Simulated assay, not measured.
Amino acid sequence: MPGPKDLDPSSSPRALLGAELRHAREKAGLSQEQLGQLLFASGSFIGQLEAGTRRIQPEHARVLDEVLGTGDFFQRNCKASAKSRYPEHFAEAAEAEAEATAIRMYAPMLIPGLLQTRAYARAVNRAYDPTAPEATIDEWVEGRMVRTRLLDHPTNPVLWAVLDEAALRRETGGRALMAEALCHLADLIRRNRVIVQVLPFSAGAHKAMDGSLKLMDFEDAPPLVYFEGPGTGRLEDDPATVARLRFTFELLTASALSPQKSLALIEALAQDYAHEEHP
C-alpha cells in the first residue's frame, strides 16, 4: 500500500499536517496523552499539533514517524509547515494567533502589531534594524499587514489589549505618523472591533513591568501564552504558567483606565500630535 502523499504547502500545511497526525494517532490506537509521553510532551501539546496551533518540529517528526509507522511522512512534510514570512522566533506565535478565538495582550512600549498602521509598522521595523535593505523592510511590513487582516472579520477573534501610556507617548516615526496611528486605533475601538485600555503612568508599579505578554484561546486546543523580548520570543502551554499570566492580565485591566476613558485619552493625544502640540 502506498504511503501518504506530500502535503500541498499552499493549502494551509499546518492544519493539514495536524489532521494527518490525528488520523495516524487514532489508527495506532493511541490517546493524545499516550503519544505525548512518547515525545516527552503533554497530551495538550499533541492536541495543539493536531489543531494546527503549534508547529511540528523536525525532532518531533522523526519520533512520530517511528511511533506511528508513517515512514518519513512527517519528517518530509514538517518542512512545508515550517515555511513562514515571519522571523523564526515569532513565526509559531503568528500562526497560532491566526487560529485564536480570543487574544488578550499587554504592550508596554509600542502599539501592538495587530493594531498598527502600515506607516507605523515601517517606522518600528526600521528602528529594529537601521541598516536593513529597503526590500527587507518592505517584506517585514507586509507580513505585519497580513496579520492585521485578522481584524477584517467583524467579531472573531475577540481582541482585548492593555497598552501602557508609554506606547502612546513614544513618538515613533514623527508626530503626523503618530496622529494617524492613534486615529486608526480609535477607529477600531469606535467600531467595537477591539477593546483597549490604557495603563496610565499614574498606576505606578505593576505585575507586568518586565515585558509584554499575549494570551491566546482556541476553540479546539488548550490556551497559549507568548512572551517576547528584543529578537526573541517563547510560546508556552504550561497550564500553571498560562493561569498565572491570565491573572496578571486581569490585574492590569483592574489598574488601567476604563475603555471609555482610554478612548478619550487616545483621541486627545491624536489631536495633540496632529496639531503639533506637545503632550
Rank of each mutant, 00 (worst) to 15 (best):
L7A: 02
S11Q: 14
P13N: 01
R14K: 10
L16K: 07
G18F: 00
H23W: 08
A24M: 02
K27L: 12
L30P: 10
S31N: 10
E33V: 04
E33W: 14
Q34T: 08
G36C: 13
G36D: 11
Q37F: 02
L38I: 08
F40N: 05
F45L: 03
I46G: 10
A51M: 00
E59L: 12
H60Q: 05
A61T: 11
N77T: 06
N77V: 05
K83F: 08
R85Q: 13
Y86C: 01
Y86W: 15
Y86S: 13
E92F: 00
A94C: 11
E97D: 06
Y106P: 14
P108R: 00
P112R: 03
P112I: 14
T117S: 10
A119R: 12
A119Q: 09
Y120T: 04
N125Q: 11
R126C: 13
R126F: 06
Y128L: 09
A132P: 00
E134A: 05
D138K: 15
E139G: 10
E142N: 13
G143D: 01
L150I: 04
D152M: 04
H153T: 13
V158C: 07
V162Y: 06
D164V: 08
L177T: 09
A181H: 03
C183E: 13
D187M: 04
R190T: 02
R191D: 11
F201C: 05
F201S: 02
G204Y: 12
A205Y: 01
A208I: 08
G211H: 10
G231E: 10
E236D: 12
L245A: 03
T248P: 06
F249I: 06
E250H: 08
S255V: 07
A256G: 05
L257V: 15
L257K: 02
E267P: 01
Q271M: 04
H278E: 08
